[in-house]
Amino acid sequence: MSEIWAQHALDVGDGAELHAGMLRLWVGRGVHDWTLGWRYAPEGRDPVMAVVLSADEPALDDEVQRCSYAFPHSQGPLVLAPMLADRPVIVQPMHELTVAPRSLVQLYVTTSLWVGVRAEGGEQLLRELPLVQPKQTWFGPSTIEGEWCYAGRLPLMRLAEGISSRPHRATTPLLIRNRSTEPLAVVRARLPVPRLSLFRSPDGGFWTSRVSVVRREGSDQVEVEVLPRAPDEAGQAVLVAPARDQGSDNVVSRALGSMFSHSLIP
């Protein structure tokens, strides 16, 4: 089994099949085009990570989505690059968590990776696909006000060891510091994934930038800081994908309700 996140030499007429997370993706190279076909395995199956070169085109059925990209002359190699989601992810602890006044808590959460399919030697991004089909969610104070996000599948954990190492997910350390005299309830939290960079540790695991959330004293504002370097837990990690949203500042001040929110009454 070869490394997925790498360059794959494909001759004209050849194809490669990627099994990553719940995604099964086939990429074929023609003389003048690249063709993609993909589908998602049903939930509940164990995620796998494998790439098979010289694979035949999968049989078409209703669940396979396909698209082609035309070029004057297709050129290899094919590059499969790991990426983070394109929207914030809403994460929640296993049970409601309250951060006591003037205290802090270090949490960890994993979010699903995406794959960027690049052709023409990595110059042309053909498509971005999530390795696990994301579920959409609404995050905000009401059904009128809010923003589109993805729902996180796994809960926030207290220790990094609690996070089972999965090759299709990236771990984010989240530090919550409550400087207020009021307790801070964490029911649902907004993880600003588009602002995070993706790193790979020497053991092959994926980590993102550390996120620090500080609630100031006597204020309903929080400061959300994204540290640009790899977290210490990742060891000598290397940057594999810079943040999608690089325009914003490292520290952003937000209303408390737009960072932590309760469930909406349906």
Binding site: Q133, K135, Q136, T137, W138, F139, A151, L264, I265, P266
Partner: peptide, 8 residues
């Protein structure tokens, strides 16, 4: 996939 996680 089109049904939102929240509101529940």
């Amino acid at each position: 996939t089109k049904v939102l996680e929240e509101p529940k």
